[in-house]
């Protein structure tokens, strides 16, 4: 083979193998980092046609509305737990840390965490968007047909429970 062609060939083979290993590593990493999204009822009843339920210990995301009056705090630390609901079943989320500014009872949130028993999730992260009217799109989809009342339009009695001080 022509020496120049040979060099080209080496270069091409080198690049292709590099690319292949990069893509392989990428797909592997991707597989490890996919977190499925559940709503409380999907978590209890199972997801999709086959009704696949998540296993204990699985990493997942859960989105729902925070049940009014369900937020309980530990008096000495930042441990907090609350219930999430969409169309029926209730799931408990525990979390230690600072809740996002817009976390409020009755508001839609998304939590990322690990399933520790059938209906409890230890969250590592709680997300609420910086917009009062916001509902996570997945929650909005799951709640289709159920009227969502944004906090700003709720009765003064419950909407101002946390904001009244300001």
């Amino acid at each position: 083979m022509h020496p120049r062609r040979q060099k080209r060939l080496i270069a091409v083979v080198l690049v292709i193998s590099l690319l292949a290993s990069a893509i392989g590593a990428m797909l592997y990493a991707l597989q490890q980092n996919i977190d499925l999204f559940y709503t409380p009822s999907q978590l209890v009843d199972g997801l999709g046609k086959d009704k696949i339920k998540p296993q204990v210990g699985q990493r997942l995301r859960i989105g729902g509305m925070v049940v009014n009056g369900s937020v309980t705090r530990d008096p000495d630390s930042l441990k907090v737990s609350f219930d999430l609901v969409d169309t029926g079943p209730i799931v408990r989320v525990t979390y230690e840390g600072i809740l996002p500014d817009l976390f409020r009872e009755g508001q839609g949130i998304v939590a990322q965490g690990v399933l520790i028993d059938d209906t409890t999730i230890a969250a590592s992260e709680v997300l609420a968007k910086h917009d009062e009217e916001y509902m996570p799109p997945e929650v909005a989809e799951a709640l289709k047909g159920i009227k969502h009342v944004p906090p700003s339009q709720q009765g003064a009695a419950n909407a101002t429970s946390t904001e009244g001080r300001y």
Binding site: A29, Q32, N33
Partner: peptide, 18 residues
């Protein structure tokens, strides 16, 4: 196939290798 999210670890890991 359902809603999923891809977390920071994926990107961090890949950029670490790169």
């Amino acid at each position: 196939l359902g809603s999923i999210s891809i977390g920071e670890p994926f990107f961090n890991q890949m950029f670490y290798y790169l």
